[in-house]
């Protein structure tokens, strides 16, 4: 089906975009469009005006600055996948990017758009939670930052105001003693997660000084698991410790049975995925080098 008629606006600066969003009647923001365009074609979305961000060059960046890893609203999944900075320092981002949809969609779709979409099956929200990141929003009143754990409300709903635009997501820079990983279970290549788990650990003198665990597709939003984090902090990493953290994550998860698997199965997978993510994150925290060298290569295939 064709999308309903709409006016297409192409601002070239953030300022212009913000004033357009304020002046237009319920505009929809288009970045990568890999979810929005099909939604418009099925008329699940019928915006009368669309503000297309693709002409705003100042939003196209992926860089470390001011103590953060910053991704502008036009950073595509493929940019994350191809970044050597990500590969060296941000294992969870390096794990996630190639597991999102397929190559063509990764060339267009954006990380910020995925977070704005706030689909509980989306991967990036979980990574953002695991890194205790922030969403940077611009509105008529200026800029504000929303911590990841206050951002997601319901499926496809978040605390962004109607007249606000997400210009950036950012996470604190990852030091050499930090490691992270994301493990995803999906039915087939390119699918949404049936369950996913991101873990981040900071090691100091053989002990975990800081840790986070967050989950995909097992609750009404992406969720973090504070109980697991508390259990890990101050301890020496071990298989038993990760098993207990995995069990806490499974208890925290609230999956629903569907055509892909029972709630019981998904809960069990949360346990397994969390253990694996913690093991990979710890390995990466203890070693310097590309993410693929340490931890599990989830893109590997067998014969």
């Amino acid at each position: 089906m064709k999308a309903a008629q709409f006016e297409h606006h192409e601002p070239t600066t953030v300022e212009e975009a913000v004033s357009l969003i304020e002046s237009l009647d319920e505009p929809t923001i288009l970045a990568g469009g890999q979810s929005l365009v099909p939604m418009m074609r099925f008329r699940l979305a019928r915006p009368e005006t669309v503000v297309d961000l693709n002409g705003i060059d100042e939003l196209d960046y992926l860089q470390e600055a001011d103590g953060y890893l910053k991704l502008g609203a036009l950073a595509r999944h493929a940019d994350v996948e191809e970044s050597s900075l990500i590969d060296r320092q941000y294992g969870s981002f390096a794990d996630t990017a190639p597991l999102v949809a397929d190559p063509q969609i990764r060339n267009r779709g954006t990380v910020v758009g995925s977070i704005a979409q706030s689909d509980p099956k989306g991967d990036w929200g979980t990574v953002l939670l695991a890194h205790e990141g922030e969403v940077v929003a611009h509105g008529p009143g200026g800029e504000r930052t929303i911590p990841a754990d206050e951002f997601f409300l319901l499926p496809y709903d978040n605390t962004l105001a109607e007249d606000e635009l997400i210009t950036e997501v950012r996470v604190p820079t990852s030091g050499d003693d930090e490691g992270s990983a994301y493990h995803k279970l999906k039915r087939k290549v390119g699918d949404y997660a049936m369950a996913g788990s991101a873990a981040r650990v900071v090691l100091d003198g053989g002990r975990i000084t800081d840790a986070t665990v967050a989950l995909t597709a097992v609750d009404i939003t992406n969720v973090s698991v504070p109980d697991a984090a508390d259990h890990l902090e101050g301890e020496r990493p071990s298989g038993d410790l990760f098993k207990q953290a995995g069990e806490l994550a499974a208890e925290h998860a609230n999956p629903e049975s569907d055509e892909h698997g029972s709630a019981e199965y998904k809960r069990n997978m949360v346990r397994v995925l969390t253990q694996r993510a913690l093991a990979d994150a710890t390995e990466r925290a203890s070693n310097d080098g590309p993410a693929a060298r340490y931890g599990t290569d989830q893109m590997a295939v067998g014969d």
């Binding site: 089906m1 099909p38 493929a78």
Partner: peptide, 27 residues
């Protein structure tokens, strides 16, 4: 497929493969 899944509409645009059913012509 009309849903962005099948890739039959893939074209090579500005140096990369994109699904031309997931992009408005104005873009």
């Amino acid at each position: 497929c009309d849903t962005g899944n099948c890739g039959a509409c893939t074209v090579y645009k500005d140096g990369e493969a994109v699904k031309s059913c997931l992009l408005f012509a104005v873009q």
